[in-house]
Computed example of a mutant assay.
Amino acid sequence: MLFHLGGLYSALYFLAMLATITYKSQVFSYPHNCLVLDLALLLLMGVLEAARLYLGTKGNLTEAEVPLAASLAFTAGSGLLSVHFLLRQTVVLWMDSVLSATLLVLHGLEAGLQVVVIADFIR
């Protein structure tokens, strides 16, 4: 259930961040190279999220450790990108902080559950 909630929030996060980056590029003086970097990192994050959710669901349904471990690694990568959008973006709005902090909490919960499930599958 947490994967589905995390997946739904990840999709909403992607769309909201795309909208806020578009807004910030129109309202604030946003350097072109930073805009391209933020959009590329957001796209990378979307790809990581899709792979993470697919592997996590597959590993959970087949009770296999390897897909869950790969999903856990993608969770860490996606978490690092969330930290970038939380702290290191060119222009960070209050909404960016709330969205990224919520995503980090969900990633933390999912990572903890993935570790517990992997340990249970190994046993």
Rank of each mutant, 00 (worst) to 15 (best):
L61R: 15
G59E: 02
L113I: 04
V117T: 15
H4T: 11
R52S: 02
D38M: 01
Q26P: 00
L44I: 12
V66T: 14
T62V: 05
F85G: 01
Y54L: 09
M1S: 12
A16N: 04
D96G: 04
F85M: 01
V66P: 00
L86H: 09
G46N: 05
S82P: 00
V92T: 15
L72F: 10
K58H: 11
K58T: 06
I118Q: 01
L113G: 04
F28D: 06
G108P: 03
Y30G: 03
M45K: 12
I21F: 03
H84G: 01
Q114A: 08
A50W: 06
S10D: 03
P31V: 07
I118T: 05
M45V: 01
G46E: 02
L42S: 04
K58F: 06
A64E: 15
A11C: 10
G79W: 03
T62R: 14
L41S: 03
N33D: 14
T90F: 14
A19N: 08
L113K: 15
E65Y: 05
M1F: 07
V116H: 13
A101K: 01
L103R: 08
L87H: 10
V47H: 05
F14W: 11
N33V: 11
L103A: 15
W94N: 06
A40D: 08
D120H: 14
L81I: 09
L12R: 05
N60M: 11
N60H: 11
R123P: 00
L43G: 03
T62M: 11
G79S: 14
L81W: 04
V36Q: 10
G6Q: 08
L5K: 07
S10L: 04
N60A: 13
I122R: 15
F28R: 11
V117S: 05
A51I: 05
L87M: 11
S100F: 02
M17N: 07
W94M: 08
D38G: 03
H32I: 13
D120L: 12
F3T: 08
W94K: 11
V92Y: 04
Y13R: 05
T20W: 05
T102R: 02
C34K: 15
L39T: 04
S29K: 12
L15W: 09
A50H: 01
V117M: 09
V91N: 06
A70Y: 10
E63P: 00
L80W: 08
F74A: 13
T20V: 12
D38W: 01
S10T: 05
I118C: 06
V91S: 02
L2K: 10
L87V: 14
F3E: 13
V36A: 09
H4Q: 07
F14A: 10
D96Y: 09
L113W: 08
F28Y: 15
T22N: 15
A64W: 06
M45C: 08
E110H: 07
S82V: 03
R52Y: 05
A19D: 10
V115W: 09
Q114G: 02
C34N: 14
L44P: 01
A111W: 02
S29I: 13
S97T: 12
V98R: 11
F14V: 02
S29T: 13
V98K: 08
L61A: 11
V98Y: 10
L81A: 05
V83N: 00
M95C: 00
